[in-house]
């Protein structure tokens, strides 16, 4: 097992290298640089040149790339051009927001999706089945920003139950954290639960059909016990797989949700940095999010092996 983890961690290195290399290529393609943001609308060409020299953006890309990798090996991701802090700090202070959002919505999506999926599988080929599956699909069919704004108006203004945006760290106020994260997490979960619901349904159908479930039923176990104890546990494998894939999607989705709900998360940090051409933050931020994605997938693979010994043995 340890060997497996070590191997997976090692194999993450080339992946992350590819990510950082791609970031350089994109930065090379993107027109304009941070000097425009610093200099403003009326800056003269001389002022712009001065800013570029100060920050070293006038140097050739290759030289900047070599420097960046050199610093990376020393664990230094550089300094933001605009935020007055190191890239590591800039990303770390945002991470709790994005992790809260992604984590909570993953939980919500899993709960809602699994329930819908089980419901559909248990009442297979009935209107409940069709209805749950359409419900699951609707989340996939509506742009999340629009859905989020509707939720804000409904729960924030009309009903006045929940705040319309902003972030409270869990360390400061647990209830406040729950209140401010509910709507964003729900929005994001709504777009993700469909995938989980469908996977759950089909794997449940497979499992329900298998001998041991039939046996259990024949032995007179109550239907609910059968479903939850046996069937669901076996159906966990595909759910976990989906969770791994969804983790990446959630980080992407977070970009939009964070701006609708005014959350200071990593997604908005990176988008803002792209828009302002704050290259060190783009580089560092993408490296961190990619690392999280890779890490989550390693965990998922481990869970996978733990849930299904056959998979582990194959490796």
């Amino acid at each position: 097992m340890l060997l497996f983890i070590a191997r997976r961690l090692l194999s993450a290195i080339p992946v992350l290298f590819v990510v950082s290399l791609m970031t350089f290529v994109i930065m090379w393609l993107v027109p304009g640089d941070v000097s425009a943001e610093i200099g403003g609308t009326d800056a003269t060409p001389e002022q712009i040149q001065q800013i570029r020299e100060q920050l070293g953006i006038d140097r050739p890309l290759l030289e900047r790339a070599v420097n960046w990798y050199g610093n990376l090996l020393r664990g230094d991701l550089g300094h933001s051009y605009l935020l007055n802090r190191s890239v590591v700090d800039a990303v770390l202070e945002r991470l709790p927001v994005t992790l809260s959002l992604a984590g909570l919505s993953l939980v919500l999506a899993t709960i809602m999706g699994t329930l819908l999926g089980i419901l559909a599988a248990v009442r297979h080929n009935s209107w409940v089945d069709q209805g749950s599956m359409v419900a699951a699909l609707i989340g996939l069919s509506i742009p999340d920003f629009w859905f989020g704004l509707v939720l804000i108006i409904l729960f924030g203004v009309t009903l006045g139950w929940l705040p319309t945006g902003g972030f409270v760290p869990i360390t400061e106020d647990v209830l406040g954290w729950v209140r401010c994260m509910t709507l964003p997490a729900l929005t994001l979960a709504f777009t993700q639960m469909g995938v989980i619901a469908r996977m759950t349904r089909s794997s449940m159908l497979d499992v329900l059909d298998q001998d041991f479930v039939r046996t259990a039923r024949a032995k007179g176990m109550r239907a609910r016990t059968v479903i939850f104890k046996h069937a669901l546990r076996n159906a966990l494998v595909p759910i976990v797989t989906v969770v791994g894939v969804t983790a990446g999607v959630l980080l992407s989705g977070a970009v939009v949700i964070e701006s609708v709900f005014s959350l200071p998360g990593v997604g908005r940090l990176i988008v803002g940095s792209i828009q302002r051409r704050d290259f060190p933050v783009i580089q560092g931020g993408l490296l961190v999010t990619a690392s999280i994605f890779v890490f989550v997938n390693i965990v998922v693979d481990m869970l996978y092996g733990w849930l299904d010994p056959r998979v582990r043995d194959e490796r």
């Binding site: 992350l16 992407s252 997604g267």
Partner: peptide, 8 residues
């Protein structure tokens, strides 16, 4: 690597 890059 491409997949680890958030799509948006």
């Amino acid at each position: 690597g491409l997949m680890a890059f958030p799509g948006v």
